[in-house]
């Protein structure tokens, strides 16, 4: 039985269709990622799955339980980390954790094993008020609180937004360990490198699912021919590339630009001469493999 089944789900707020007829399922112990821009419907979906709001149409189940009828039972089975830091800022680290354990009728001691890896990193600061923690520590505390009642499904809404690269790496290592313990994880992220760490990803925009696939399958569907172009002055390079005949998209990727052509047989020499003519120096052009960010941006601009 899949851990989550969503069937023709819809939700609107006044005239805005936040979720527009979406269907998908998530397997047990799957690490399932949602990527999509702000306002695409991720948070609405997560709130329905966590039984905080009810859908207008369609159904959703978690562990076979209906999100509307069986909401009380579901709440015992899921751990939820909302996008906004929602712990008590004026309680200490330890007090927050005890509070969440008590609310769910358990104790920290009983489930300590599950959170040990994560919690041990913030335990030296357990007397500190949660509001005084750094971003990375807040997120570790929030994850500990979401796990303390031993849920079988974890729902994480942009847990790493505003978090530094080191803490992000550690956070994803923890998610992998939790997955290996059999926990199903649904996670939303704006970081494309994180999307590629998921078993499957769903791309969502304007309340619609645009694609659901493994990261490697998503990459295979990239339709155009792609080049990586470098020059000394990246800002003028980006602008000049945009006006080169036949160019489909131009996006900066670190110190290079990714340029796509719908035409298969793009002449690199022609582009090189064009850039020289515009006064560029240090020009390097090479064919590039699309990554998940290229694919996502292609899907975004298509709609």
């Amino acid at each position: 039985m899949p851990a989550i089944v969503v069937d023709h789900l819809a939700k609107h707020f006044s005239t805005v269709k936040a979720l527009d007829d979406i269907s998908f399922s998530v397997g047990k112990a799957e690490l399932f990622g949602f990527i999509g821009p702000d306002g695409s419907g991720k948070t609405t979906l997560f709130r329905i799955l966590t039984t905080l709001i009810v859908p207008d149409m369609g159904t959703a189940t978690v562990n076979g339980l209906d999100v509307v009828k069986d909401y009380r039972k579901i709440r015992k089975d899921i751990g939820y980390m909302p996008g906004r830091f929602s712990l008590y800022a004026d309680l200490s680290v330890e007090e927050n954790l005890n509070f969440y354990a008590t609310v769910f009728g358990t104790t920290v001691a009983e489930n300590y094993e599950l959170i040990r890896d994560i919690y041990s990193q913030i335990e030296p600061f357990k007397k500190r008020k949660a509001g005084k923690l750094s971003g990375g520590m807040k997120q570790k505390l929030a994850l500990s609180c979401a796990l303390i009642h031993k849920p079988s499904v974890l729902i994480l809404d942009e847990p790493t937004t505003g978090v530094d690269a080191v803490s992000r790496l550690e956070f994803w290592e923890m998610l992998k360990r939790l997955k290996n313990n059999g926990i199903t994880i649904v996670v939303a992220t704006p970081y494309m490198d994180e999307a590629s760490l998921c078993d499957r990803v769903a791309l969502i925009q304007d309340g619609k699912l645009m694609a659901i696939s493994t990261p490697s399958e998503v990459i295979k569907t990239y339709p155009w021919s792609l080049f990586s172009v470098k020059a000394d002055d990246i800002f003028t390079l980006l602008n000049d590339l945009k006006s080169f005949p036949g160019v489909h998209t131009v996006f900066a990727f670190g110190q290079a630009a990714h340029v796509s052509f719908k035409e298969r047989n793009m002449d690199e020499k022609l582009l090189s001469e064009y850039l020289l003519g515009k006064g560029h120096s240090g020009i390097k052009i090479s064919p590039a493999e699309a990554n998940i960010e290229d694919c996502f941006m292609e899907l975004m601009i298509k709609t």
């Binding site: 821009p37 702000d38 704006p190 990246i234 800002f235 980006l238 996006f251 960010e293 975004m300």
Partner: peptide
């Protein structure tokens, strides 16, 4: 923080400008 990859790049175009 938290915006989509296209908007992030448009934002950097503004910074370059």
């Amino acid at each position: 923080g938290g915006v989509d990859p296209v908007t992030r790049r448009q934002f950097w175009d503004m910074i370059f400008e």
